[in-house]
Design a binder for these strands. Sequence first.
DNA 1: CCAAATATTGACTCTCGGGTCGAAGTTTGC
DNA 2: GCAAACTTCGACCCGAGAGTCAATATTTGG
Lengths: 206, 206
Amino acid sequence: MTEVAQESPEPVGRVARKRGRRIQQILAVAAELFGERGYDAVNLDDVAERLDVTKGSLYYYFASKDELAAAAIETLGSDWTDRLERLPAGAEGPPTARLRALIREHVAIAVREYPAALRLFLVPSTWPDALRVRITELRRRHDHVFRTVLTEGIDRGEFRVVGLGSTLQAMHAAMSQAPLWCAGLGEDEQERALDELADTLMKLVA
Amino acid sequence: MTEVAQESPEPVGRVARKRGRRIQQILAVAAELFGERGYDAVNLDDVAERLDVTKGSLYYYFASKDELAAAAIETLGSDWTDRLERLPAGAEGPPTARLRALIREHVAIAVREYPAALRLFLVPSTWPDALRVRITELRRRHDHVFRTVLTEGIDRGEFRVVGLGSTLQAMHAAMSQAPLWCAGLGEDEQERALDELADTLMKLVA
DNA sequence: CCAAATATTGACTCTCGGGTCGAAGTTTGC
DNA sequence: GCAAACTTCGACCCGAGAGTCAATATTTGG
């Protein structure tokens, strides 16, 4: 269901691996474009062209635009979410330090390596229904990471929040829009901007 | 340039007024749809259908989809922005009270009466170039309102912020996503949610 | 080296939706 | 009541882009 159009009795030889690599190449390009432009504005000829291939080839691997987009979002989003979940910052130590590091690293990674991914969260309604479900799931996972640290900090008395919901909502919102905010800044300015943003968001739990 | 397709030597009689009303009706529907779905996903047949009219009629008043969308955004956005700029909360009094009221009222109005408008700010890149300019201008005006109160509060020593930029960015981001957050809540819950959000955002300047 | 499996092509179809326009219907002002 | 102005209709054109497919090229394993 996740990616390939044809389902074969999965022969795991050289061939299958090559096929897998090709799919990864396609997904990488697709993810970039879908993230940049949104669903409607991407056309498959463009995707194909970037791969020096024709549209027909895409349909050899994916049954439809929807399926390609779904798979692309899947990789884009889950790579990124996996990474968030495994951030050492999220692991242990006092909640204050953890949260600060979590915010800072998460945003840095997002802005640098997945500038497109955050778009997914901004206007879910522009994506086909099937994709929205996946997006919601990803969002839930992100939420969970931050919620965990937050509740722990609150329990320990390190954090004082007005409300868990609004705090999470404000944090996610601000982080989602960070790439937009950072767009057009130089390396250093960007670093400083992200530091500032992280510090600002920490005030929400101060 | 703003709205009508044909430019006449503006006869300001009954006819012109009627025409004006019709245009307003069209814009109201268009604004709602464009705000809800974004530019691409709206098709003019849908807009026409909601008005119990055919597409041809729309083209009698507007030269193109772009122009209709531009005019729709114009009304949607400028009504809303005018209102923000004129909020009594923004006028005088101690910055703390003003900012809190400003946030609270602004979000309430946005969620209740302009649920679609905020979408404009979320992903500007999905709109045609001409519209992006207008959107940017609106955003600037919103920014200005909050920036004014913030700087005053800082000068007076009432506010302590990490940085003006990141504070504004975080506030705008959170407010922009409020409708998404409030979607599906009942009247009362919504009120409480918005109160909570406003209080949470006040922590950014505490 | 050859046949079978795999991958790619490019020309094709088809639908959707923006945009046009002359004819028909309605309103206005005299 | 009637001509002129204004408004609406709906059939039509057209380009863009999703999706198809038989033919062709390439790779693989024996």
